[in-house]
Write a protein that binds this DNA or RNA. Structure first.
Lengths: 348, 348
DNA sequence: CAACGTTCTGTAAGCGCTTACAAGGAGGTG
DNA sequence: CACCTCCTTGTAAGCGCTTACAGAACGTTG
């Protein structure tokens, strides 16, 4: 019947399968989706035809018909370090549980995702999660008006939902530990609060404690989050005659590189300066002294993001609590504490 | 004209835009795609309407019409370590250059991607890249018959194209270095050759050198690729009374964990045993002794994969050479060589 | 045996976009 | 002024799938 003559010698469609099986396309669709009742006999015929023709459905056609892409978008910056990978893994896993595929966009090196790519991404998914600071607010709001949109670890933007791991409190705890437990008096923060919302929050925690204690808050040593930035920070400190006895770094990469550079100049950690990081990367527990840092439940966060997004897409918006996940301070030797046992314990 | 009454109060479509702008949908499509000539006047009208209505295209409809998903699929195992992240970044970047989106599927912890998910992925993209060993051969071949399919760092499978970084030769070089430069005589390989094709190739390189020298090839210490596996390997060696003076590990995680465990038992590296890894993770240059390892051009590999896939999709199949990328041995202290300078050099 | 209830299956109307083709308009030329 | 060309625009036919609705087939039951 259906004169759907393939103009290209392209793959089988639901029509060719229907023809081959001697049934209607509706029936074929039913056996594929497992919806509706189909007699065992015809089901077998259809399955046979599918097998024989090597039929492979075209997702776009289904998406169009059901008006759902059955996909979630995720926008991340460069995938350096374990943080984004973990987030992505949690996200992907949760998405897969709901039979959703995930389409990923990475912002070009350090910059933001251009509006065009972002719009194109939005066109292919049912909902999007964006890492804080990777897409500008304008584009964010525009899309948020059309589809569920979640910002991860971002700044609080009116009209846009946010999900994050705790920063300020842990940072304050870390700072207080340096001052109280180790008697440090001249702490500095390494990292640019303007580079990302979570760095800002970490700086806020740091600043809060200093203000509480009546200590003047030194300007943060601004820079990126990569190893080279840590080296630079160390060199600035060295050049200034080491005006600090404690360094709170925005992440582990910086802390590690800074520590090494300092050691190279004869400045001991933790003897001369205490150092802390953030993220608990693998190297943090292999170096000596071990790096005191903060561990975030990144993977859980990723999963939570995907689930929340899915809820928003399906409209099944459950309780919206728990939007900020707790983190944990991990004490090792770099702050001055006695080194704990070997890093043999299982990772993650 | 078009009585496309929205039954749901859903978003604007190309029809509503056309109505609002007082033109036909064909014209709207033209200005959006930038195809065909459109007078400046109407183009502005259309753009206005789009803006006013907050119009956002539905990618599925376009995909259906142009019979292209404009997306590439990528299947990876767990995203641990820098290897997969780098690969993914290279892939994504190259895909983005061709305006292709990337949809990602991760195999569940250590296992293979189930056929169902794989088929669903295949339905949503124009071509797929799969990491070696993550999808079983049957499924692989079935899909390969329908869409461009590339295996990355996998075994050579008849009928399936393959792209990889060099393994065997570098592994042989590393092994020879241990024997010749450092006079080691009882090397062992840590890693399960059956776990992944590239581990197998690394083992082959190792074995080749031993056979060449007339040294009996000891059974590899089989295990996974995570830190815990390195610890276990170390404990097996310890239990056996250290039957080795050189350990070639399948990757850095293993090497690092093993080294630490050995040190904990009083076995020195490289004094008592030389150790090498693979991948050159960040920690490799921070530990003391630095880890001698092999660096792969993973990011380039990812980019090459995406480009190749795109060529295959568009039919523009250029020269198919260079399917195996060269790697580089990175000498540090763990093999017994004098430690090179500080790891201050720029990462990656 | 007729009436009725279940299953199973087919018909057809979309889903929102692209694009071949045709038609309408605006100049230009002899 | 008739005719031709080029530029813009509209018409309409799909792309491959889902699904509401209706009809067919097949017992069951009174």
């Amino acid at each position: 019947m259906a004169t759907h003559a393939a103009r290209t010698p392209a793959g089988a469609t639901i029509y060719s399968v229907a023809d081959a099986a001697g049934v209607s396309i509706a029936t074929v669709s039913r056996v594929i989706q497992g919806t509706g009742a189909v007699s065992e006999r015809t089901r077998t015929k259809v399955l046979d035809a599918i097998e024989r023709l090597d039929y492979m459905p075209t997702a776009a056609a289904r998406s169009l018909a059901v008006r759902q892409h059955e996909a979630l978008g995720l926008v991340l910056p460069e995938l350096s370090g374990p943080y984004f990978s973990e987030l992505l893994m949690g996200f992907e896993e949760a998405a897969a549980e709901h039979r959703l595929s995930v389409v990923l966009s990475l912002a070009e090196h350090g910059g933001t995702l251009d509006a065009d790519r972002f719009a194109r991404l939005a066109a292919t998914v049912d909902g999007i999660a964006v890492l804080g600071g990777v897409v500008d607010d304008g584009a964010l709001r525009r899309i948020a008006r059309q589809k569920p949109l979640l910002v991860v670890a971002g700044a609080e933007t009116p009209g846009v939902d946010r999900l994050a791991a705790e920063n300020t409190t842990s940072s304050a705890a870390l700072t207080a530990h340096l001052l109280d437990a180790h008697g440090r008096t001249r702490p500095v923060f390494v990292g640019d609060p303007d580079i990302a919302p979570d760095v800002r929050q970490r700086f806020e925690g740091f600043r809060g404690v200093l203000q509480e204690r009546g200590i003047a808050v030194p300007d943060p040593l601004r820079g990126g989050l990569r190893e080279a930035d840590g080296v630079r920070a160390a060199e600035r400190l060295l050049a200034d005659g080491m005006p600090a006895d404690a360094v709170v770094c925005a992440n582990d990469e910086i802390a590690l590189a800074l520590t090494t550079r300092l050691a190279g100049a004869g400045v001991g950690v933790p003897a001369d300066v205490a150092v802390t990081g953030w993220d608990d990367v693998m190297a943090a527990r292999y170096v000596r002294p071990g790096l005191t840092t903060v561990r975030q439940p990144v993977r859980e966060l990723g999963g939570l993001v995907a689930r929340r997004l899915h809820e928003r897409v399906t409209g099944a918006t459950g309780p919206q609590d728990e939007s900020v996940l707790a983190t944990r301070v991990v004490i090792r030797g770099s702050c001055g504490c006695p080194e704990p046992g070997h890093p043999d314990q299982r990772a993650t």
